[in-house]
Amino acid sequence: MIPTSPDERDVLAGEYVLGLLDAGLAAEVERAAQDDADLARRIAFWEQRLAPATASVAPLPGDAGLWDRIAGSLHRGAGGPLAAVPALPRRTRRVRDAWGSVRLWRAVAAVATAAALALAILPPRPPPESATRFFALLQGRDASGAETGPGWLIQVARDGTVRSLPLTEVEPGSGQALQLWTLWDQARGPVSLGVLPPGGAVRLSPERLDVIASGQLFEITLEPAAGSPTGRPTGRILFIGRARAPAPQPL
């Protein structure tokens, strides 16, 4: 039973924070604190006031693989994008494997989510066009993973400006959005270029793209409206394709 007298509640909260309660009573205190704001406040008092006791604890060297484990667990907790994607035709599956390899995703999550949230769209006024360095014609994929033909065009100008141009009409469901990704470094994994605005046509500033090379993979996935919560693609691939340089000689 949770006591009613202030002193007894302080003692109980203190014993809870010190870890001195048996498992049953500790669980009861945790449950009670969810509805009992006074008890929660008394617990928070001890948590806050005792925390400086850790001043004597010297930090240890970090565990190199630990963040990867945490990020991996967060990703699996988010539903497992790869498990949710139906089997793809053989040729496509190789691409999927490259995207899906856990090793690819190291250190990406942070950057990608930040990019998704901070999508910088240049003003609509058309500046002088920089010559196109690469096109990527993205092929559509239906829910079964079957190819549905050219669906999206990505144009990368010499100055690094990226233009995204839908060739088909795509209406993400309510609470969903399209997110554009690119992969240039297997070790780094896919990097978000941002959540696409409704309609999907957008021009991205050159800083968005660190590196651009022939063969670079572009992909558009279906994600929550705010972008992938994990920093890597979590929804199914809607469009995928590689960058190609236009022919060097004009026709």
Partner: peptide
């Protein structure tokens, strides 16, 4: 749901928290 923030907390405190 900004995972970059979790990463910053990790980078900042993981060694200390590991010791705790």
């Amino acid at each position: 749901r900004d995972i970059a923030a979790l990463r910053r907390l990790y980078d900042r405190e993981a060694g200390f928290l590991l010791a705790v």
